[in-house]
């Protein structure tokens, strides 16, 4: 898995490439905790290159949201493929995260 973080207009765009599972999720959790630790107001997770995510990946997303909410931070998901979408659905997380078709839409706040 590869993680790249860039900042655009104060928004942290985190691009993830590869499977997010029990092996790789600690690295993602650490990268995202760094952002919430700095109280970054909006984090966009680009999931376009994530073919698979398991429950540890889901737990990482929820943890990030839990860390961001107390300071008014926001976590948006962008471009999830059908596998990741299905796992989000199965985990009942669709209502918890704003989900956008692309990073650009997430940056603009469009559904």
């Amino acid at each position: 898995m590869r993680i790249r973080t860039r900042f655009q207009e104060g928004v942290a765009v985190v691009s993830i490439e590869g499977d997010v599972d029990m092996y790789t999720s600690p690295e993602l959790r650490s990268a995202l905790s760094e952002l919430t630790g700095e109280r970054v107001p909006r984090i966009v997770l680009d999931l376009g290159a994530v073919p698979f995510m398991d429950s540890s990946g889901i737990a990482t997303l929820v943890q990030t949201l839990k860390e961001a909410r107390p300071y008014g931070g926001e976590v948006r998901l962008a471009a999830p493929g059908k596998n990741v979408l299905r796992i989000l659905e199965l985990s009942n997380l669709m209502a918890l995260f704003p989900i956008h078709g692309s990073v650009e839409e997430a940056l603009r706040g469009e559904a």
Binding site: D21, F52, D54, S56, I87, L90
Partner: peptide, 9 residues
Amino acid sequence: MLAVNEGCA
């Protein structure tokens, strides 16, 4: 794939 992954995890 998901079920076997979760079982092993």
